[in-house]
Design a protein around this nucleic acid. Sequence first.
DNA 1: CGTTCGATGCACT
DNA 2: GTGCATCGAACGT
Length: 211
Amino acid sequence: MTSTPVARVLPRSFYDRPTLTVARELLGKVLVHRVGRSVVSGMILETEAYIGEDDPACHAAPGPTPRNAPLYGPPGHAYVYLNYGMHYLVNAVTEREGSPAAVLIRALQPLEGVSGMRRRRARGDGLAESDLCRGPGNLTRALGISLTQNLADLAESALVIEDRGMAIAEVSRGPRVGIRVGVDRHWRFWATGHPAVSGPRPRRRRTPVLR
DNA sequence: CGTTCGATGCACT
DNA sequence: GTGCATCGAACGT
C-alpha cells in the first residue's frame, strides 16, 4: 500500500530546543491557519533566528518589555507584532521559558487556500503564486495573521505548524536581512534557489555624511 | 537592471 | 522624538 505521510502537528518539544536547530528544521514544515471553515497554508521556505538579550537584533535586546513578553514565555507559541506600522510579522517562540528567543517565518510556498491568499493580498490577482507568501509581511497578510494570533499555541490552536513529510532539497544559510545590527550572525536559513524566497534588500545607509 | 523613498503605527528613550 | 525583523512605487542608468 501507499504510505501517505500523515500531517502531524509539531509538539511543544519541537520548539524547546536550540533556536538555530528549530530555524533550520522548520524549513519544509507547513504553517496552517484555520479561519472559519477554510484552511490556508504554506510550506516554510525561509526563516531567521533571533536569540536572547545578547542578540542586538532580537526584540529581547532591551530586556523584558510589554511587547516582547511572548519571547520570555513557553516555547511553541506565536509571537506576532506590528512592524513599520503596517506589517504583521510572525515568529515561533523557542527554547525554555525565561530564555527569550524565536524564529521569524519569512516565506512560504502556498499550499491550501490560494484563492483566499489572493483575496487578502493587494493586487493578488496579478501576482505569481510564488509571490503570494514571499516576505514576512506578505505571508501574514496572505494567511490572515494579525495581532489576534499573538501568543497562539502553535501546538494546539487555529494556527499550527505541521510536519507533512516534505523535505527541502538544499538549504542555504547567511546573514539576516532587513536589520542594521547583528548582521554578523548568519542566522537566516532558506530553501536554495526557490523562487518564493525573499531576497536580500538594499538598506538605507545611516548617512554619516561628511562632517 | 539599479537605488531611493513614502506610507504608517507604535514601542521605547 | 527616533527608529524600526517591510513593501512597493518611482525614479535613474
